[in-house]
Simulated assay, not measured.
Amino acid sequence: MILYLVLFSTILFVILYFRLYLFAFPENRLPILMYHKVEKTSNDDLTVDLENLEKQFKYLRKKKYTSKFFTEIDLPAKKSIILTFDDGYKNNFNFLPSLLEKYDLKATIFISTKFIQEGYQNYEMMTFEDIRNLDKKYFEIALHTHAHENFRNVSDDFVEKDLKKNMQILTDQGIKYSTTLAYPYGKYSKENKKKLKLFSTLKNLGIDFALRIGNKVNYFPTNKPYELCRIDIKGKDSLIKFKLKLIFGRLKLF
């Protein structure tokens, strides 16, 4: 009897933790995938090579996933998915348009405006002209702050000013953007008072959604719009691992 209870409890935990119950309500299942750089070859976790990325896109098309912008997620679909790319690397501009068009997919790029203005380490970043020239059929621009500072390490006042600057620069550059934020490093304070203050700031700025990492599939519609999860797609993920992440998010044993 005890064995059955343990087995039942384990199965129930897996179902709830990985939100497998969403397979019974596919229109409420919303995986959001997180990418950064795209190159012909990959030597690090933040870079997906072209061959693997194409295999992943091909699989999404084969399985009839419907990729969406954040401005479209109120329209339910049985296999909705959102593809996101952070920071604004030039390689996104070089490689993504043809792949997205080939597999009829859409992507949201979260722009950190300081990176566009001043560069980031030794990486080549898009220009504002590049961003303006992205095909709006396949690309949506969204917010990634101006200075890309970890929200756990800065004041409430800094967060508000920095987000306003992010939004204002994009507006001044004639770039239409979604009122969706990807937290830099996927982080914000977990202390309840600071978290509520942050969420109040986001609401006052007109931001509709904000994304952490979390590595779980979302239930949507959600009552936690500022705590949406993204699934981190690593550079060396095999196609099998990619398929498992679409179901479970990230499994720690992989």
Rank of each mutant, 00 (worst) to 15 (best):
L196P: 02
K58L: 14
F8A: 15
T108N: 04
I247W: 01
I213N: 13
L53Y: 00
A210V: 05
L202A: 03
D44L: 03
V6S: 11
R29Y: 03
Y21W: 10
F70D: 08
E140M: 08
T171K: 15
D104M: 07
G206S: 02
L170A: 02
G119N: 10
Y120C: 11
K243A: 06
E149A: 13
Q173D: 11
I111M: 04
A210D: 01
F128Q: 03
K216S: 12
K245R: 06
Y177Q: 06
Q168K: 15
N218R: 01
D87L: 10
K252T: 15
K114P: 05
A182P: 11
D49T: 08
K37Q: 10
F57T: 06
Y4F: 12
A24D: 11
Y17T: 11
I131G: 04
E101I: 05
M126I: 11
F199W: 03
Q168P: 06
K187G: 10
F110G: 12
I207V: 02
M125L: 03
G235Y: 04
V159M: 08
Y177P: 00
S80H: 09
L12W: 11
A147E: 13
L99Y: 08
T171E: 13
G186E: 02
I111Q: 01
N215H: 01
L253W: 15
K241N: 11
Q121I: 12
E227W: 07
Y21C: 11
L33G: 00
L246Y: 04
L75K: 14
R152E: 13
L170G: 03
M1V: 12
D157A: 14
F248A: 11
I116T: 04
L134F: 07
Y35R: 07
T71D: 15
K203M: 08
N215T: 03
N215W: 09
L196D: 04
L60I: 09
K40Q: 13
I109N: 07
T127Q: 12
T222Q: 02
L60W: 02
L205M: 01
R132V: 06
N52E: 01
P97E: 03
L7I: 14
K245F: 05
D87P: 05
F18W: 09
K203Q: 09
K90W: 07
V154T: 08
F23V: 09
F209E: 08
D44S: 08
P97M: 00
I175F: 04
Y103D: 10
K78C: 03
S200T: 11
F115E: 09
N94F: 13
L75D: 13
A182T: 01
G214E: 00
I32R: 06
K234I: 09
N223I: 08
H36F: 06
N52H: 09
S67I: 04
G186M: 07
L5T: 15
T108K: 03
N223T: 13
L30T: 06
I247L: 10
I81H: 03
K55H: 08
D87T: 07
F70G: 06
P76T: 12
K194W: 02
A147S: 15
L50D: 06
F220S: 00
F8L: 14
E54V: 13
A77K: 12
I116H: 06
F115Q: 07
H146F: 13
L96R: 01
Y138K: 12
L16M: 10
Q117K: 15
V159H: 05
V14T: 14
H36M: 03
I175S: 07
R132P: 06
S238F: 14
K64R: 15
G249I: 05
D44C: 05
